[in-house]
């Protein structure tokens, strides 16, 4: 079991993965405007988000990540595979 999982962990990753540093987040909500299907403001300043959004949201996520005024969104883009188109490069976490 452990071995099988070890393989999964090291395999190329096909999904967008996000984590927002909610200590750093100040609810400027730029991500909610630009990727409303992924990020949502709950009440005045609590941020909700789907940490593994649908790949169709790629463009929106890209805009949300770039526009965060405090650069609180860490994202891992899907890795390039043979049958894949051009994907954004992985960016360092804030």
């Amino acid at each position: 079991m452990a071995r099988a999982h070890a393989l999964d962990v090291c395999a190329p990753r096909a999904r967008i993965r996000l984590v927002v540093d909610l200590n750093r987040c100040q609810a400027y909500a730029q991500c909610c405007f630009l990727a409303p299907g992924v990020f949502e403001l709950h009440g005045e300043e609590a941020l909700w988000y789907d940490p593994e959004p649908d790949p169709a949201q790629r463009e929106h996520v890209l805009r949300a990540v770039a526009s965060c005024p405090v650069q609180a969104i860490a994202v891992e883009w899907p890795e390039r595979t043979d049958d894949d188109g051009v994907e954004a490069p992985p960016r360092r976490s804030p």
Partner: peptide, 27 residues
């Protein structure tokens, strides 16, 4: 540029109201 937390729209509670619109228009 990595971690481009610029001051173009100000910051704090007076952060530009129209910032997301300006971003979309600029893009």
């Amino acid at each position: 540029r990595p971690e481009n937390a610029h001051l173009g729209f100000g910051g704090g509670n007076h952060y530009c109201f129209g910032a997301p619109l300006a971003r979309i228009e600029g893009q």
